[in-house]
């Protein structure tokens, strides 16, 4: 007859399951709180932006607060121009680098390159912006013309910022390809590069693309470094060349927030810009996540 009371009996079990329950609840509350925080921030932004949200705002051509004009269309286009261009550069440099690191790099060389790339991540973006201001701007002005502050400068700084992420994630995606595929291709007489091109890249494609999209999202939200090098004409326009200056969504907020009167249409419009930015980045991130999921299922 089992003794159900006393040491190790059912009574003790009751206490343990109570503790389990308590921990479960605490963890759930923790998870819930992150959702609640995000929701609260979005709700607050939407409320503050609401008075400004209309078609004149989103499609309006001119942003000139002094004349009570709050059209951000050209700013949105400029932001995409700067962001997408930077990411194209990052992809053009980063993916080949990732291929090199994953497939062609001798071990001792890799041990030098990888830590250097990781160091790049550690550079604060404002330091990069400062570097852009002091080095990149005069370089562009003296060698290519224009003001120096330009879309090109933005591209360069943003590309440097996002390069480590794209390289790192793309390399992981390439390394994740099962060895058996590589062996099969090589045993058929494929060269290393043919194996990369025809077996590895198709397999790692979604992972690489996802990393590029995530970098794009990050780059769209970059504020300080971009503001320092992009030029910011008083009344924003769509840049006509890469040497032309531009104003982007983030720099618009940064230049105006400190003196804006609360409340005013100007104030609400700044929140409107924030909301638009949030939606663009959220859309990009959701697309990236969806692609990764689809790639896994495939």
């Amino acid at each position: 007859m089992v003794n159900l009371e006393g040491k190790g009996g059912m009574k003790r079990e009751g206490q343990r399951s109570l503790l389990e329950k308590a921990i479960e609840i605490i963890l759930f509350v923790g998870a819930l709180s992150s959702i609640i925080i995000v929701f609260l921030i979005i709700a607050y932004m939407s409320l503050e932006a609401y008075p400004a949200l209309n078609l004149d705002f989103l499609l309006g051509w001119f942003w000139d607060p002094k004349k009570e004009m709050f059209g951000i269309f050209q700013i949105i286009v400029s932001t995409l121009y700067v962001g997408v261009g930077a990411i194209l550069i990052t992809t053009a440099i980063g993916v080949p680098t990732a291929i090199f690191l994953a497939e062609f790099c001798p071990r001792n060389v890799r041990n030098v390159i990888k830590p250097s790339i990781e160091l790049l991540v550690g550079i604060p973006t404002i330091v990069l912006g400062f570097f852009g201001l002091m080095v990149v701007i005069p370089f562009i002005r003296d060698n290519f013309g224009g003001w120096g502050t330009s879309v090109l400068a933005g591209w360069m700084i943003l590309a440097i910022m996002s390069l480590p992420h794209v390289i790192s994630i793309s390399e992981d995606a390439l390394r994740a390809v099962p060895n058996s595929y590589k062996e099969a291709a090589l045993a058929l007489g494929a060269t290393r590069w043919q194996t990369v091109k025809k077996v590895l890249l198709p397999y790692a494609k979604t992972g690489i693309l996802a990393s590029v999209l995530l970098a794009l999202g990050r780059v769209m939200g970059e504020t300080m470094a971009v503001t320092m090098v992009i030029g910011n004409p008083r009344v924003a326009w769509i840049p006509t060349s890469i040497l032309d200056r531009a104003k982007v969504l983030t720099s618009t907020i940064l230049l105006d927030w400190s003196y804006v009167e609360i409340p005013s249409m100007h104030y609400h419009s700044l929140f409107g810009i924030g909301l638009v930015l949030f939606f663009i980045v959220a859309l990009i991130d959701v697309t990236a996540t969806y692609m990764v999921k689809r790639g896994v299922i495939k």
């Binding site: 099962p178 058996s180 595929y181 062996e183 099969a184 291709a185 090589l186 045993a187 058929l188 007489g189 494929a190 060269t191 077996v199 198709p202 397999y203 495939k298």
Partner: peptide, 18 residues
Amino acid sequence: YELRRKIGMVFQKPNPFP
């Protein structure tokens, strides 16, 4: 590469490409 073309290999676990 020409050598490996002339010599086909079949592995222990079937490994067709995806």
